[in-house]
Design a protein around this nucleic acid. Structure first.
Lengths: 205, 205
DNA sequence: AAAGCTATTTATAAACT
DNA sequence: TAGTTTATAAATAGCTT
């Protein structure tokens, strides 16, 4: 009556495969929930992205992800083995992947517009010069127009630079430890730290 | 000596983004280790496959996997409804809140430029008309220029709208309360059950 | 960014409903 | 198969240094 109180509350268990099948099912459900909760808390507390994928004993897939599993797994896979894609962007803040995609589409469209406008500006400028050397009317208003035109061109140039800078910033590869300036130079394996359960448990599986 | 010892041990904390950066870093490391350990235990206890991917605040990737992250993510993705994959690569990634502000600032600046250009466009257009009714040269090149000019104006208008929408998205999203569970969160989609942190925390971050 | 140290808060193994 | 309870095992927040 003294030594071992079987106790009613939690009991220590060895971390090894649970034999009783129904018991295993219960533990799986409970711990899976606990794991997802932990992941959720970590994501919130530190404002980081997390993906957790668990296949049940019956091969059913359970997952947790912030902002979502797909974007994270893609980001992970795209960086690990294969060299990062082009200087093409990886990008923007948002808690929703769908919108992130929309954003990059929009920004890309903007860039296209900017380029188009630059060309327009050049064309206009050329035509202006042609007209100018063509004679007649040397009216002040014409001068003003030329002036305005050049201002427009300058504005467009500035705009393009601004947007380019913006896009550049937004589409930066979050590879290095530099807050927002990682460049996708060469995929560094060192940026990947992968743990396996063997680090926690010596038991072979 | 009795009342409130701030206590030395663990104190309850609210699950919300940690403000102090160094504190956040410590918490990230500790909880990440804890999360991986939990994943490891679940994997062992129930003999199931698990993958956990975490991107640190500095966008460094940490992962835990049994038997390995890649095989699990592939298995997961292959079963998922394949993403549409637009012309643009999967360069959609997430940035952190801090950058949202910068983005807004930049985009706002762009908007200002757009407005300025729009004015230029209008002025030019008016001058063009004035010139036109003013005489001489009814050359085709002039027609072309007018045409181009109007195209430019249209492009600018479109650009402005696009940017406005973009800014709108960025400004609105962070405060939106619509969870992105839409994808397949929280519910069951075939053999997929995806949870998101919103299931645990009602607060949007 | 790394290790210990508590004092508490959490997570849970089993039993129970 | 899933909640509730209980008593205990674990995880960890805030400090050291």
């Amino acid at each position: 009556m003294v030594s071992e109180k079987p106790a009613m509350g939690r009991r220590k268990i060895k971390i090894e495969k649970i034999s009783k099948k129904n018991h295993l099912q219960v533990t799986f459900s409970k711990r899976r929930a606990g794991l997802f909760k932990k992941a959720s808390e970590l994501s919130t507390l530190c404002g980081v992205d997390i993906a957790v994928i668990v296949f049940s004993p019956a091969q059913k897939a359970f997952s947790f992800g912030h902002p979502d599993v797909d974007s994270i797994t893609r980001r992970f896979l795209s960086r690990s083995p294969s060299p990062p894609s082009s200087g093409l962007p990886q990008l923007i803040e948002t808690r929703r992947n769908a919108n992130a995609h929309d954003q990059i589409v929009e920004l890309t469209r903007i860039l296209v517009h900017i380029e188009a406008e630059k060309k327009y500006g050049e064309v206009l400028d050329q035509m202006r010069r042609a007209d100018r050397s063509r004679c007649c009317w040397e009216s002040p208003i014409e001068e003003l127009e030329l002036h305005e035109l050049e201002q427009l061109r300058g504005a467009l140039e500035e705009l393009k630079k601004t947007v380019a800078r913006q896009v550049n910033n937004i589409l930066i590869e979050p590879t290095s430890s530099l807050p927002f300036l990682a460049v996708n130079g060469g995929g560094e394996v060192g940026d990947f730290v992968t743990y396996t359960r063997f680090l926690y448990e010596p038991t072979i599986v």
